[in-house]
């Protein structure tokens, strides 16, 4: 099936906080390039990966580029399925309001703004993994 249509379901799993290592940034770079390939793309945030979506990131004091705004542009790249694991948030003392609001414009509904972030339980995250063809971990 996947071979015939050449469309596969890609799942990016992000498990690391930004800035301490390059993985968050270089994962985002793959997601952006990958968007041009018209695959079915989902991006998951598990463990410390949830910190990638924190609002109010300010990197002025560490001399590194703040790339957090790029997540908000993902909708323009047709990347509209961001999954955040609820347990990962809770374990870190975070709530959904701590994260950036990320939306996309739904062209089928008069460009209404819709949330790209879906909060899922660990069991739903587990199911997501088992439903994808290609898993890229960063």
């Amino acid at each position: 099936m996947a071979d015939e249509t050449n469309t596969k379901k890609f799942l990016y799993i992000n498990r690391k906080a930004p800035y301490g290592t390059v993985y968050a940034l270089e994962s985002l770079e793959v997601v952006l390039i990958g968007a041009a390939f018209e695959q079915d793309v989902s991006v998951a945030f598990v463990d410390d990966g949830v910190f990638q979506l924190m609002s109010g990131q300010d990197t002025a004091g560490i001399g590194m580029k703040n790339f957090s705004k790029t997540y908000r542009a993902l909708g323009d790249y047709e990347v509209r399925k961001l999954y955040v694991e609820r347990e990962s948030l809770a374990e870190r003392g975070l709530v959904s309001d701590d994260l950036m609001a990320i939306t996309y414009e739904d062209e089928n509904e008069d460009y209404a703004e819709k949330p790209s972030i879906h909060f899922v339980d660990r069991s739903e995250m587990t199911k997501l993994i088992s439903e994808h063809d290609v898993i890229l971990s960063f």
Partner: peptide, 8 residues
């Protein structure tokens, strides 16, 4: 298996 998931 259908896919490989690396927990890096």
């Amino acid at each position: 298996k259908a896919r490989v998931c690396a927990w890096l």
